[in-house]
């Protein structure tokens, strides 16, 4: 059974597709209110039309840092409050095994790192004053090690985990929940081309994330990931570089 989201007033950044879209939909479906933020307005409108009066679309490009504070205030005014903030924006362009491409890398840094920091800073600043609410960021198991396939994607998620840990250490003392989610493979547009096996559906991932929203800390979405990544994190570097994982 999905957790109750009645009374939730949420901002979801990255709400036009994937896990972010599904979280948005589930909050609205359960009776909560969401400001859905994304770059692609047409998709937001489509989603908002499904839940009139519960989803408020707001177009914002997370790489445009200057417009974040005013969008944030506009969103909290619209919601008349805020008790959940979700950063679900993330990009992972295809990078070849021998490719080093600053354009693609910069794109990941802008969205996965800078955008996350600019948005979460606003939420943390507000919530350290109001002393309630949850901040949820979608990290990744990819952030656990620097794996050969996706250097900058992995590093961007490692950054996000460390940044969220620091935010947690700052504001959880005020009663704010700070939650880092580390999903494994999830079927979304971002991962479509990877033809993932055993991938979790976005619906299932979103449901688990909403259930974890008040559980301060870092969370995997599968118990097997907890075990597997405990091992992977502890493989010595000289061995790790010889492994094809």
């Amino acid at each position: 059974m999905p957790t109750s989201v009645i009374g939730v007033k949420a901002i979801v950044v990255g709400a036009s597709s994937g896990i972010g879209r599904e979280i948005t939909r589930q909050i609205a479906d359960g009776g909560g209110l969401v400001v859905a933020v994304a770059r692609r307005g047409d998709r937001l409108e489509e989603l908002a039309a499904l839940y009139p009066g519960r989803i408020f679309p707001m177009v914002q490009d997370v790489t445009d840092h200057d417009s974040i504070p005013s969008t944030f205030i506009e969103a909290t005014d619209k919601l008349t409050g805020l008790n959940l903030f979700v950063y679900a924006s993330g990009v992972m362009p295809e990078v070849g095994p021998q490719e080093f491409n600053i354009e693609k890398d910069q794109q990941m840094i802008d969205v996965n790192i800078s955008g996350a920091v600019a948005w979460i800073n606003q939420a943390a600043l507000r919530m350290q004053g109001t002393k309630h609410g949850s901040i949820v960021a979608i990290g990744s198991v990819a952030g656990e090690r620097g794996r050969w396939e996706q250097p900058v994607y992995n590093a961007s998620k490692t950054f996000l985990h460390a940044y969220m840990e620091a935010v947690r250490n700052r504001v959880s003392r005020y009663g704010v929940h700070v939650v880092t989610i580390k999903p494994g493979p999830v079927q979304t547009e971002m991962t479509e081309r990877l033809k993932l096996k055993n991938a979790m559906s976005a619906e299932a991932a979103a449901e688990k994330i909403l259930a974890l929203r008040n559980r301060t800390g870092e969370h995997y979405l599968k118990f097997t990931h907890l075990i597997a990544f405990a091992i992977i994190r502890n493989i010595p570097s000289f061995l790790f570089r010889r492994l094809k994982i």
Binding site: F72, T76, L125, G129
Partner: peptide, 20 residues
């Protein structure tokens, strides 16, 4: 715009409802 540093949560005396 508004100054987020001023954000605070207060309740009525009965503690049932509050507002940011």
């Amino acid at each position: 715009t508004a100054d987020l540093n001023r954000m605070t949560h207060v309740t009525g005396f009965g503690l049932v409802t509050g507002a940011d």
